[in-house]
Simulated scan of single mutants.
Amino acid sequence: MPVLSSAARFAATVISLTAFAAFAAAPARAASDTPIKVGIDLSSTGPAAAIGITSKNAMLMWPATLGGHPAQYTILDDGSDPGAAVRNVRRFVSEDKVDVVVGPNTTPSALAALDAVAETGTPMITLVGTSNVVEPQQGKRIWAFKMAQNDAAMADVVTRYMSNHNVKTIGFIGFSDGYGESWLQQMTKFAELRHIQIVDVERYNRTDASVTGQVLKVMATKPDAILIAGAGTPAVLPQRTLIERGYKGPIYQTHGIATPEFIRLGGKDVEGTLFPTQPVVVARDLPADNPIKKTALDFVTRYEARYGAGSVTQFAGDAAGVYPLLNDAVTRALKTAQPGTPEFRAALRDSLEQTHELVVPNGIVSTSKADHVGLDQRASVMGIIKGGQFHYLSQ
């Protein structure tokens, strides 16, 4: 059975073996008892906890084997701290000798972890949207993959929607870190493509208690719409401040808000929010001919049966997609090497970039040497918050 441990420094939850195994029926074990070791770093506490907790919940549904071999999963909490994330990843690759790292699930932590996995030749599947974790595919980034759709694809779909709804000018309020920077870069590119002008750019920290100054500055430019480039519950603060200050225009957020906690914390202030997302969040509303709907809806049904109605998030969907991606790649890698060896880690990395048309809850994955994400526009849709729920929104 899989084994999970926790980081004492951040008091990560210890999950019992029996409880973990009960979440999913596993295939029969292979003859070899050599486990495939998976080190998982998540932000289960701190500002990104709303993201990390639902990711962990989905991982607790993973089967107990990978490629027919027993799997040993170790989950550590980084407390939403990039420094702690690096320490966790270094423990995984240097002490635990894992075959693959999953996470981190915040952009600053994922970028900071690149050195550790590259130095030891260990593949890493991150859970972030920022493309610069895997692009360009050279140097240390050849060991990094990611499940979440790129910010570029999300900026594409959101600016297309803006253009179709006569938005000519936008104000930007984003995190003052890699996530906010990536979104600013992509919005600048796609806004220019669609003849939309960014009239003001403001930044804030995930832990800030006030953004009044930034909000007043962006409102003074009288934009047609405002985009908040934040993730998780810290994305509520600018929107609430905008509403309190009397802003009446449309408010757009990024795919990083798709958690029930965002709606619970935001309440009436986040009604009508427009945002790009991936299929899991709006699975029930997707058109019948959507090629991902069946897989997405199956996951949503199983997840909500365990964690409650309305509990699913995009991040849970991303985490759920890691398992079929890994299982597919491990099956191929085992043909050339055994777990626990540098040869296996290298073979697994190579196999991860040979995925073809693999349907996962949040998209269809086809990777290559140049593309360590593998998601196309089938993994990008528009959503709206109505009646305290996420709903699909056609272009």
Results as ranks from 00 to 15, higher is better:
210 S>M: 01
287 P>T: 07
76 L>S: 12
261 E>T: 05
225 A>T: 03
118 A>D: 03
73 Y>Q: 01
170 I>H: 02
2 P>K: 01
11 A>H: 14
387 G>S: 09
182 S>E: 09
34 T>K: 14
159 T>H: 07
282 V>K: 05
318 D>Y: 15
59 M>P: 06
205 N>G: 07
27 P>Y: 00
221 T>P: 04
322 V>M: 00
361 P>Q: 11
26 A>S: 15
173 I>H: 05
35 P>R: 07
156 D>S: 13
59 M>E: 08
109 S>Y: 03
332 R>E: 14
344 F>R: 02
323 Y>D: 01
357 E>D: 15
107 T>S: 12
263 I>A: 02
169 T>K: 06
174 G>I: 11
164 N>R: 15
40 I>E: 03
161 Y>K: 00
256 G>K: 06
129 G>I: 08
248 K>C: 01
26 A>R: 09
259 T>C: 00
393 L>T: 02
219 M>C: 03
168 K>H: 09
10 F>K: 14
324 P>T: 02
236 V>Q: 06
316 A>S: 12
381 V>A: 08
310 G>V: 04
73 Y>L: 12
127 L>A: 08
212 T>M: 04
340 G>K: 12
372 H>Y: 02
31 A>M: 10
281 V>T: 13
21 A>E: 08
220 A>I: 04
348 L>V: 06
30 A>L: 12
69 H>N: 13
23 F>H: 15
82 P>F: 05
217 K>L: 04
16 S>F: 00
69 H>R: 14
130 T>H: 10
383 G>P: 10
13 T>F: 12
120 T>E: 15
296 A>D: 02
44 S>N: 15
339 P>L: 03
294 K>I: 12
102 V>S: 07
300 V>M: 04
105 N>I: 01
250 P>Q: 07
66 L>H: 07
221 T>S: 13
213 G>V: 02
370 A>Q: 10
248 K>R: 13
204 Y>W: 05
131 S>W: 11
358 L>W: 04
19 A>L: 00
79 G>V: 09
24 A>C: 11
46 G>N: 08
72 Q>H: 13
123 P>C: 10
166 N>F: 10
61 M>K: 02
70 P>H: 05
243 I>K: 15
233 T>E: 07
326 L>W: 09
141 R>S: 06
288 A>L: 13
253 Q>G: 14
201 V>T: 14
213 G>D: 09
118 A>T: 00
292 I>V: 15
